[in-house]
Design a protein around this nucleic acid. Structure first.
Lengths: 142, 142
DNA sequence: TGATTGCCTATTGACTTGGTAGGCTGAAGA
DNA sequence: TCTTCAGCCTACCAAGTCAATAGGCAATCA
């Protein structure tokens, strides 16, 4: 498995924010109540989204989170790569990793690279707005 | 990450066997010496491959493993699914799992399903024989 | 009978995952 | 100014997975 609850929770929150008033800051409690996600756990994920600028946050009373762009402007690949760390199917093609010493004579490497491309291109072809079309309100889960 | 060393080791062994005399049984020790893989660890993986009929084994002196089909007849998706258990990118689309109670109102499910298809179709389009074309002898690693 | 080789079960240490706990900081409003 | 709300930060925890190891049994051949 490649995409854990971390990435899926991120997607849920982003979709949830996309369906709400995008001017207002939405407190996390409101989201976790509706989505039945652990608030404390989600706080960590929101930190990642916030630091990367995918959401804007406001401290204190009346604070919370809101999207920083329109839902059409988020590729879900971007959200997932950020929160999962990587979407690479094998460690060999993870950008962060020190390159495998056998890379030059590995006949499987092209296979992994192509698979990596396939996955990322596909997830980059889907936008946050694509996930909120058919569902509204609490009739919605990821 | 979706494909661990377990699946990659399996691929290496299969490719190794494909490059050797396919009539003879090759003892595991010979393979692990050449490929620098832990013999004991590989034994467990071979058990999986053997039980599923992907390789034939012979006990005792002069025993070992050999492919049960031609290298052109193994899809690498088959080898990886078997040894990894599943190639599903998310648990939601794992066949074994009890279906998610929210499946009917999950707008992301079609995305996961399509991604799952993409991955499996791609890996099923590549054959074991494709991995042994350009490399011979010890000039070969996966 | 002894050497070889596959097979089976259990155990280990490192790491990841999902979640919890507690406290600090910053902002709005009474 | 004080309280309350809400984000943020660090640490911790239990369960599970991964890669590997250990030891011994069973089958086969010379």
């Amino acid at each position: 498995m490649m995409i854990s609850t971390r990435g899926r929770y991120a997607l849920r929150v982003m979709a949830c924010l996309a369906r709400m008033d995008r001017e207002k800051y939405i407190p996390l409690k409101e989201i976790t109540d509706a989505e039945e996600i652990s608030q404390k756990y989600l706080e960590g994920i929101m930190g990642t989204l916030s630091k990367a600028g995918l959401v804007e946050s406001a401290h204190g009373k009346g604070g919370g989170y809101r999207l920083s762009r329109a839902p059409e402007d988020y590729r879900i690949g971007e959200i997932l790569r950020l929160t999962e760390g990587s979407l690479s199917p094998v460690s060999c093609v993870e950008g962060t990793e020190t390159p495998c010493p056998n890379a030059s004579r590995c006949s499987a490497l092209p296979v992994w690279r192509r698979l990596d491309e396939l996955i990322n291109n596909y997830l980059d072809s889907i936008y946050l707005s694509d996930l909120i079309g058919d569902f509204t309100g609490d009739n919605y889960v990821i």
